[in-house]
Design a protein around this nucleic acid. Structure first.
Length: 612
RNA sequence: GUCUCAGUAGCUCAGUUGGAUAGAGCAGCCGCCUUCUAAGCGGCAGGUCGCAGGUUCGAAUCCUGCCUGAGACGCCA
């Protein structure tokens, strides 16, 4: 807002400013000076020197002359910089602006965006692991940030409930039912070698739960399966199970759906606990395969020049659309590849329509782990072939690629595999809590590999930066509580510093005049106060930038910096003083800080406690 | 072999898209609680921004090559 005033000042001149288009002024050149002594903002004119064919100091003087008449700006030039200092009145009105905003930083920069954001999309074959937690935290925060910038966003979870991995988890649970059945005396305890496709301990729990709720018919069916299995003379292995078709049909129709529902429910419960909110849950099996959408998409694709048959298989001519090579869609045995199903899913995303029959989304965004990066060109190629994208660079399809998470246990890196005893996201949340987990996951840029050290995370509970930010918020809340309640320390209670009515009035109808005494603070407090106001003022730009760059960590960093600025002011400047005007002005500042911190934390999905 | 990402303080990481003397948090050292939350503040110390070239007024940032680490390159899912 303060920056806007500077831009507005330039706009009074003309569409061109000192011979340069205004975009140059607004987008590039205005920044915070590194050394605060220079001023509140600095315009760096050096980049223009080539176009204007003038030395930077000359340009700086021209710019300074043009701005000189503005009542709220004082300037000095140093080499290629025009340093700008704003009047107290302008800073105070920036603060008023924040107090009156319903939601700090809310803007409409992305109001034309209608986005389908897909993320997490774990297989329903087990608990979410720590890596999923990163996408969950990032995705949900991006949804909040994008919406804060006016975008319409549908967060969606793709349930990968078709294909081989479902049969694998089904068979894993099946194998584990043996122990349960033996314990119940329903199967004889004979030696039997088995290899579990999914060895995790949660599979045992799933088997127990499954057996526990079986109807007598289904229990008979299960025992029937076991009699067939025990008739085999080889160790039981997923790849060569010799079961009658009826057994498989029972596994597919009873066992697998139960396991899927159970796994999905536990994932959903954890996501809910993390305050990660999906609007749509898209089942690959029910919404794609059962409706024949894969065949439907393939028929569509065959009508283009980008599909052909060779070696008994159907291929996508992706090599002509930016991919390394062509890709198989239908195998020579007639079954679909995983890619074909995924293309059908994305095709379906683009063909969804709103109530007026118009395409529902103009932007499809996926958050993918870096292990899927090779997948991007082929998916883009398919979307071009199907006519959803113009070319390989079309921004209507966007992948936010995030690097993986390494789990560090006892100082050693563990592969995030299917170990029998694996540390899950749920375990982590239980030890460090929701707020610390989300903040930790999000405070680093998504394109660096995240080492998640469990011991550190647990011990870091008290030194996690999230508490630093929350503490600042709680401090604000505490000051505001004290401000309106009479003190009891002496025998005769002193009255409150300000009435609740006056405080409410201050937050709803602040005026720069009411805040004037902020600027009469002493010389140690004043710079810190001004710095804090400028930091508050920066919030909207941070939100916009985070949305455009899909970088939620910018919000986390901002929250820490704002908290730091507030803590600094707090230590050199009493908020509750004997002078009513000073107290009132400082309380306005506290309210603005609290409000802004609460908003930043909300965008991160982290709670903003009133006390700690 | 090809592709993606990373390499910045002892550790974990920022660095606003090429600009002023490279910044935080932990860890270390020295100070600050009779008054609003010390889960805090102030200060000190800590750097050849992986290496070598190049581009220009100017590079942690852009280009090329190399080194190191993580990951991806199936008619698997």
């Amino acid at each position: 807002m303060v920056k806007d005033a500077l831009i507005a000042a330039t706009q009074q001149q003309s569409n061109f400013f000192c011979g340069l288009p205004l975009e140059a002024m607004t987008s590039v050149a205005i920044e915070r000076p590194r050394d605060r002594q220079f001023g509140h903002y600095a315009v760096n004119v050096s980049p223009w020197s080539r176009d204007l064919k003038q030395a930077p100091p000359v340009i700086a003087n021209t710019v300074a002359d043009a701005l000189k008449s503005h009542p709220d700006i004082t300037l000095n030039t140093v080499q290629g910089f025009v340093n700008v200092r704003f009047s107290d009145g302008l800073l105070a009105s920036a603060l008023c602006h924040r107090l009156m905003e319903a939601a700090p930083g809310k803007n409409s920069t992305l109001q034309d965006n209608s986005i389908l954001l897909e993320y997490v999309s774990a297989n329903p074959t087990g608990p979410l692991h720590v890596g999923h937690g990163r996408w969950a935290a990032l995705g949900d925060s991006l949804v909040r940030i994008l919406r804060h910038c006016g975008a319409t966003v549908t967060p969606e979870f793709y349930i990968n409930d078709a294909g081989e991995q479902m049969r694998k988890i089904g068979v894993s649970v099946l194998f584990r039912t043996r122990e349960t059945l033996i314990a119940a005396g329903k199967l004889p305890e004979t030696p039997l070698a088995m290899e579990y496709p999914y060895p995790g301990e949660y599979v045992i729990e799933a088997a127990n739960a499954f057996v526990g709720q079986l109807s007598s018919d289904d229990e008979a069916a299960l025992l029937d399966v076991w009699h067939h299995l025990m008739a085999e003379d080889k160790p039981l292995h997923f790849d060569h199970l010799n079961l009658p078709a009826a057994d498989w049909a029972w596994i597919e129709s009873v066992l697998i759906p139960y396991v899927k529902a159970m796994m999905l429910a536990s994932q959903q419960q954890l996501l809910k606990q993390l305050d990660v909110n999906f609007e749509a849950w898209f089942s690959e099996k029910e919404l794609l395969h059962d409706r024949g959408l894969v065949s439907h998409m393939l028929a569509h694709l065959k009508g283009t020049q980008f599909a052909y048959e060779a070696d008994g298989a159907l291929w996508l001519k992706s090599s002509e659309l930016g991919d390394d090579k062509d890709r198989v869609l239908v195998k020579s045995d007639g079954s679909f590849t995983y890619l074909a199903a995924d293309i059908a899913y994305h095709h379906q995303k683009y063909t969804r329509e709103d109530d007026n029959g118009q395409p529902q989304y103009n932007r499809i965004i996926n958050i993918w782990g870096a292990d899927h990066h090779g997948y991007i060109p082929r998916m883009r190629a398919a979307m071009i072939a199907l006519g959803h994208l113009r070319d390989e660079k079309d921004s209507a399809f966007e992948i936010v690629l995030g690097q993986l998470v390494n789990l560090i246990v006892d100082g050693e890196r563990e592969r995030m595999g299917k170990r029998r005893k694996m540390l899950t996201l749920s375990d982590v949340v239980d030890t460090v809590g929701v707020d610390a987990t989300r903040f930790w996951m999000i405070s680093k840029s998504a394109d660096t590999t995240l080492d998640f050290d469990v011991a550190l995370a647990a011990s870091a509970t008290h030194e996690n930066p999230v508490f630093y930010v929350q503490y600042a918020h709680a401090r604000c809340a505490s000051i505001l509580r004290n401000a309106v309640s009479p003190t009891q320390t002496t025998e005769t209670p002193t009255p409150a510093f300000i009435t609740e009515e006056a405080l409410a009035q201050l937050s709803s109808h602040p005026t720069p005049a009411l805040l004037a005494s902020l600027f009469s603070a002493d010389e140690t407090a004043l710079p810190a106060i001004v710095e804090l106001i400028l930091e508050l003022d920066r919030f909207e730009a941070v939100v916009t930038s985070a949305a455009q760059q899909r970088s939620a960590h910018l919000i986390a960093r901002y929250a820490q910096e704002l908290a730091a600025n507030f803590h600094s002011v707090y230590n050199v400047c009493r908020m509750l003083t004997d002078d009513p005007e000073t107290t009132q002005a400082r309380l306005a500042l506290v309210m603005a800080v609290q409000k802004t911190l609460a908003q930043a934390l909300q965008l991160l999905g982290v709670s903003a406690p009133e006390s700690m």
